[in-house]
């Protein structure tokens, strides 16, 4: 999820001609390692495009984690019980931690966190479009846990085997926490559906209706419209295709919805005995591209809020730097 880089990036302009025999040898060695399923470490030689693509993907993933803190953070002060407040605080805190691991992984490719944040704040870097949808009720929090974290897991488990080792390592830690989030989200919806009032059940159904289609879009455009996927697969950055992951998600989620007692808002959803999968209706890709393009319900608010926090915090960061410079001078003098 979180990583539409592969689908939304502009064309890189092809592979530049290799200049020297030495470079050709390095490239050959790199290709062999990738083919053999080896992991690439930060200090290893890698082609420029591989580095650029990864940097874009990992930083976008990091941005998604921290922008993703906003829609749910929106409900911390209104959580309905102290237990739910504690769970939500812990979850949003985890997402911040995911941001930290991922920025650190991206930094191994040669860009500082501040540079990456500049790209986010200027609107140059993207983050997952799912976070441009609003959290209108408490049930949205549980639905995000169930569906959005659920889709993220589907998408991210294969990245644990990504050819770039620092990214793969970060993903292993992250995936473990994401499955907690999914269970907790589902559990909070279950509490309302099984023991709640009619008004609460309606609240849950409404949230599922609003989040279902955007969640299916999280996997990215259909395979035949995802021209960069092939290169990602070749490099071992992408392991499973968009459509395959989307189908896996639908198959897993239909059953969970039945247990929960909600319907999924798709009249075309039906079991296909021949394929042994759930068929589903047509996704409105114009909506996806509109939101990616900045015209979703909350794009402006989300970015404005990140920028405001950054700008309001500038004096704090300056003070911390000034203090550590003074300390360093004192230690030198002593």
């Amino acid at each position: 999820m979180y990583t539409q880089a592969m689908d939304t990036m502009r064309e890189e302009g092809g592979q530049p001609a290799l200049r020297t025999a030495e470079e050709a040898a390095l490239q050959q060695r790199f290709d062999n390692r990738i083919d053999a399923g080896d992991f690439i470490e930060a200090k290893d030689w890698m082609p420029d495009n591989y580095r650029k693509t990864l940097l874009r993907q990992i930083s976008q993933h990091a941005h998604s984690e921290i922008v993703g803190m906003l829609p749910e953070g929106n409900w911390i002060t209104r959580a309905p019980t102290l237990k739910r407040k504690a769970i939500l605080l812990a979850k949003v805190q985890d997402e911040g931690g995911h941001g930290l691991y991922l920025y650190a992984a991206a930094e191994t490719l040669g860009q500082s966190r501040d540079q990456m944040l500049d790209s986010l704040h200027s609107g140059k870097a993207k983050y997952s479009s799912i976070f441009n949808y609003p959290t209108l009720t408490w049930a949205d929090v549980g639905t995000i846990g169930w569906l959005v974290d659920g889709a993220a897991i589907m998408n991210q488990v294969p990245i644990c085997r990504c050819s770039y080792a620092p990214y793969a390592r970060a993903m292993i830690r992250i995936c473990r926490e994401e499955s907690f989030h999914q269970r907790q989200g589902y559990d909070s919806l279950l509490a309302m559906m099984q023991n709640g009032t009619e008004a609460q059940k309606a609240m849950v159904q409404d949230a599922v209706n609003r989040w279902w289609w955007p969640c299916l879009m999280m996997f990215g455009p259909p395979d035949d419209q995802s021209p960069n996927s092939a290169q990602g697969m070749r490099w071992g950055i992408k392991r499973v295709s968009n459509d395959t992951l989307r189908q896996k998600f639908v198959d897993a989620t239909v059953q969970q919805a039945q247990v929960l007692g909600v319907s999924l808002p798709d009249p075309d959803l039906r079991w296909n005995e021949a394929t042994q999968h759930w068929d589903f209706g047509t996704i409105d890709w114009s909506e996806f591209w509109r939101v990616v393009g900045g015209e979703g319900p909350c794009n402006r608010e989300r970015l404005a809020m990140r920028v405001a926090a950054w700008e309001e915090g500038e004096w704090v960061r300056e003070a911390a730097l000034a203090h550590s410079r003074k300390q360093a001078r004192k230690e030198k003098a002593a």
Partner: peptide
């Protein structure tokens, strides 16, 4: 303190204050 979540001056402080 929960009001700071997502609005801290640096990511580490978002995490610390939520914690």
């Amino acid at each position: 303190l929960g009001e700071w979540c997502g609005h801290g001056p640096i990511l580490e402080e978002d995490i610390a204050l939520s914690n």
